[in-house]
């Protein structure tokens, strides 16, 4: 995907143009991160054990969530916020005439390089601490499994978080919906074990939110059996197909209804 490389390059140049903004994005995301770290503070000050996992182990979950948030704000967030704009101001029309997948153009065009830096950095540090503290061996198998689950998480993130943006094909005001989506997103900050069973079931099978950040750490802690791993993989593929279908439906509606 040479095109994607070019997108990234262009974004990089554009962002270098405004160093002030770049710094500001860094700071904004750091403050959000700070808010998230308050949870870590609570965990350590109360010496919280969830399901027998000590605070250090919980860092694996919080760290994974932080990394995922970084990836989300860096790669998807700007694009998903822009899709309603494209529809409103008609930029989508021009994209429709390009011989490249419209979904690709519209949903992955922008990459923000400043926003994810603090999240990814701190997230991986947390994972590192947790990894070390829980005496998890650093083998290729562990790394590969974790990496794969991280990747699956990214795909599910894409599929779930693009839905509010897709709604803007049918409704005018979708800002609040994505706001809700963002506050639900943070439910992932902790291992799902702290939620009652019915919440866990909804979050796993109805809206597979918990698949995004829970399975990676669970795999490392040896709590994940192959059945669930397979489930995550299938879920991500099915979701991707569904979103693809939805997208096509939306564009079809767009081009047969608008003026």
């Amino acid at each position: 995907m040479r095109l994607y490389g070019l997108f990234i390059k262009n974004c990089l140049i554009a962002q270098m143009e405004f160093r002030g903004n770049f710094m500001m994005s860094l700071i904004v995301e750091s403050v959000y991160l700070l808010a998230k770290l308050l949870y870590v503070l609570v965990v350590f000050r109360t010496d919280l054990h969830v399901d027998g996992i000590p605070p250090e182990g919980l860092l694996l979950f919080i760290g994974m969530h932080t990394v995922m948030t970084g990836i989300y704000v860096g790669v998807f967030f700007t694009n998903f916020m822009k899709i309603p704009e494209y529809i409103k101001d008609g930029s989508l029309d021009l994209m429709l005439t390009k011989p490249v997948s419209l979904q690709f153009m519209a949903s992955l065009r922008y990459v923000d390089l400043a926003l994810p830096i603090p999240d990814i950095l701190v997230g991986f540090v947390m994972i590192g601490i947790g990894w070390h503290a829980m005496d998890i061996p650093l083998t290729f198998l562990q790394l590969a499994g974790f990496g794969l689950l991280l990747f699956i998480g990214v795909i599910i993130t894409y599929c779930l978080m693009i839905i509010p943006a897709l709604l803007s094909f049918w409704f005018v005001q979708t800002g609040s919906v994505s706001e809700i989506a963002h506050s639900v997103w943070d439910a992932n900050n902790f291992p799902m074990a702290i939620y009652p069973a019915w919440v866990r079931r909804i979050g796993t099978f109805v809206i597979p939110l918990f698949l995004i950040t829970n399975f990676g750490p669970m795999f490392l802690l040896g709590q994940l059996n192959w059945l669930y791993g397979g489930l995550a993989l299938t879920a991500s593929l099915v979701l991707f197909a569904v979103v693809r279908l939805l997208w096509n439906q939306a564009v079809k509606g767009y081009s047969s209804a608008s003026s």
């Binding site: 095109l3 997108f7 262009n10 390009k98």
Partner: peptide, 20 residues
């Protein structure tokens, strides 16, 4: 409507179209 990237030199957007 414009397809050029606002903050970049036009040559970059033109190159992007070359790739597209």
């Amino acid at each position: 409507k414009n397809q050029l990237w606002w903050d970049l030199p036009a040559s970059e957007s033109i190159y992007l179209n070359k790739c597209i």
